[in-house]
Computed example of a mutant assay.
Amino acid sequence: MVLRRQIARVRYEPADRIWLAALSWLVSRERRRKAFRGHPTALLAWHRQLIARKGRFTRHHRPGRPSTAPTVKQLVLRLARENSGWRHHRIQGELARLGYPIAPSTVWEILHAAGTDPAPQHSGPTWRQFLNPQAHGIIAADFLHLDTISLKRLYALIFIEHGTRRVHLAVVTARPTAQWATQLLNLDS
Rank of each mutant, 00 (worst) to 15 (best):
M1G: 15
V2P: 14
V2K: 01
V2N: 12
R4K: 09
R5C: 10
A8M: 07
R9P: 00
R11S: 03
Y12E: 06
A15C: 03
L20P: 12
L20Q: 05
L26W: 01
R32Y: 04
R32M: 05
R33M: 10
K34I: 13
F36G: 02
G38R: 07
P40M: 12
A42V: 03
A42Q: 09
A45C: 05
A45F: 02
A45P: 00
W46S: 13
H47R: 06
Q49S: 05
L50M: 07
I51C: 06
R53K: 07
R56A: 10
F57G: 01
H60T: 09
H60P: 00
H61V: 15
G64S: 03
G64Q: 08
S67I: 11
S67K: 15
A69C: 11
P70V: 03
K73Y: 00
R78D: 12
L79V: 03
L79N: 01
E82T: 08
E82W: 14
E82D: 12
E82Y: 15
S84H: 08
S84Y: 00
G85V: 12
G85T: 14
W86P: 00
R87S: 07
H89A: 05
I91L: 06
L95V: 01
L95A: 05
R97W: 06
R97K: 11
L98P: 00
L98I: 08
G99V: 05
Y100G: 09
P101V: 09
P101G: 08
I102K: 02
W108T: 05
I110D: 01
I110Q: 08
A114D: 10
G115F: 14
G115N: 11
T116V: 14
D117P: 01
D117R: 04
A119V: 05
Q121V: 10
S123R: 10
G124V: 08
P125Q: 00
T126Q: 03
W127G: 14
Q129I: 13
F130G: 00
L131R: 14
N132L: 10
Q134I: 13
Q134W: 10
A135I: 02
A135M: 06
H136D: 12
G137T: 08
I138L: 11
I139E: 02
A140H: 15
D142I: 02
D147Y: 04
T148K: 09
S150F: 09
S150Q: 14
R153M: 09
L154C: 14
I158R: 11
H162I: 07
G163Y: 05
G163H: 06
R165V: 15
V171K: 08
T177F: 03
T177N: 04
T177C: 04
A178V: 07
W180R: 04
T182V: 10
T182P: 00
Q183L: 08
S189G: 11
